[in-house]
Design a protein around this nucleic acid. Structure first.
Lengths: 274, 274
DNA sequence: CTAAAACTATGTACGTCATACATATATATG
DNA sequence: CATATATATGTATGACGTACATAGTTTTAG
């Protein structure tokens, strides 16, 4: 997988692109993000590359979190000067985008038999596991719809069982978006609950502390439903639960995914019938 | 709604809290975020307040985006020195948190009759509209589960119809999380599609450009499902669609929400039956 | 009523960040 | 070979978050 970013070599590279922000160069920029650069170039052989830089960024993020990923830190990791990076990457934002794509890696192979639910659950479990392994991925600001090769590969893998199940184009896309959003959203929220992270903000982290702290100021008058849920969950928690099922789904996630799939299956059945 | 953040007045305020990061002060910090400060204080009357600061931050974010919200800019907006803010807010992270809660505002009133689906759709539509109005809310990094009064009020409002419909505590919470995630995720992705934003990254924005650019490099070999979906959507697009329904839901969102609600309703029916 | 304590607003300063710009160097093309 | 063109580097700039010290103000303790 080769990333080359925006270096169109036309006039003065991406600088032009970033400024005009109009015209056919836009297309070329994404194209070059994918296709790799023309082989015959002048100048010295580049020792650095977008991949090496992104991999270094991944290493740093894995070790010290997303905040630790600065241009200087990445350059130091590679043993180059800070400004060298800008010969391969036009901005930090774009670097993070490539980094996220690299970190996402290849999507899982799904059981290709007719069991849609199984395949989707596997996919969801894999994505969930990915966010568990690399929590910092949730912190990468996503500026637009995914365009990286790996991101698209993940999307493609999910679309396969959905299409096979009988969803038409737009529905499959919506369903895929939906499932992605569920995993991201739930991962986002449940991360610090389980980790006992300590941010720099002096807030409590860890499920127990936060739950108790919030419970204390939950006025049942103003928040009746929340109070009810909290009480109910306290009762439920008596029977120790909290595990993952065979696809690696935590109960909350499984509930949402399964209910959604119930609805989708019913929809497909209804569509077929008409 | 009064926000007072972490100023426990015990020794040297939140500084202590942030350092120890353990002990009962944690609870007090959230408590104080809510309850307001003790009335009898020494020192001069504070002219600034967390609310005023957060409101200024909202104003700036509304006008110039989240990136424009710096401590210096906020202070300038209010006509105070930068460091004054730190008498009311312990860090920028926490300020953003409060800002997001202020910007979220009050949740909508939902039709309280038995129509669960209608109520949920209204809620979803309102949240969607909120993200449309204040796109920058999607950019506020969320470090933990929501604890702000408004955030919790939104959650509470959504939980009401879900509980009324017959979900038990944990299920209702999961469903609410789920719906929130859908809206956030879809808003996140579809924002720049519709806006024609131009980021600083020299990437094309706007649905048409991006779709075409991506289509060109979509190798049907590697991305069969994606290519199929793209082709199907191109065909579908012939009949001009793209509207919102009566609850303000864009089609993709409506599909996901409705399928999920289908599944939830079936689940409830099944649970009742047993 | 006075003095101390505690809080607010401010100014200065520091370290870090992204990145614009200029320069030296190395390479492929004419 | 000469020139155009890339790359790696060094320096510099402006913005940022925030630690720290200071001056001024108001409540509380004696």
């Amino acid at each position: 997988m080769t990333y080359i970013v925006l270096d169109c070599g036309d006039d003065d590279g991406w600088r032009t692109v970033a400024r005009e922000n109009k015209g056919p160069d836009l297309q070329r920029s994404i194209t070059l993000l994918w296709s790799g650069r023309a082989p015959g170039r002048r100048g010295p052989r580049p020792q650095l590359s977008v991949e090496r830089i992104a991999q270094a960024a991944v290493r740093i993020a894995d070790a010290n979190g997303l905040d630790a990923v600065s241009m200087q830190r990445v350059a130091a990791e590679l043993g180059y000067s800070t400004m060298s990076l800008y010969n391969h990457v036009p901005s930090k934002d774009l670097l993070l985008e490539v980094t996220a794509d690299v970190a996402a890696g290849q999507p899982p192979e799904l059981d290709e038999v007719g069991d849609t639910r199984r395949a989707v659950r596997q996919w969801v479990g894999a994505l969930w596991a990915g966010f568990q392994t690399r929590p910092w991925l949730l912190g990468v600001p996503l500026g637009h719809a995914p365009v990286g090769p790996n991101q698209l590969a993940w999307l493609d893998r999910l679309l396969r069982p959905l299409l096979a199940a009988g969803l038409v184009g737009g529905e499959a896309r919506a369903a895929a978006l939906h499932l992605t959003a569920i995993v991201r959203g739930l991962a986002q929220i449940s991360l610090d609950m389980t980790g006992g992270h300590q941010g720099d903000d002096g807030f409590p982290h860890g499920e127990a502390e936060l739950a108790r702290a919030v419970a204390d100021l939950l006025d049942p008058q103003s928040y009746p439903a929340l109070a009810a849920v909290h009480a109910a969950e306290a009762a439920e928690a008596a029977g120790g639960y909290e595990g993952v099922d065979e696809d690696g789904l935590v109960p909350e996630l499984a509930f949402g995914v399964d209910r959604f799939l119930d609805g989708v299956e019913a929809w497909i059945a209804r569509s077929r019938q008409v």
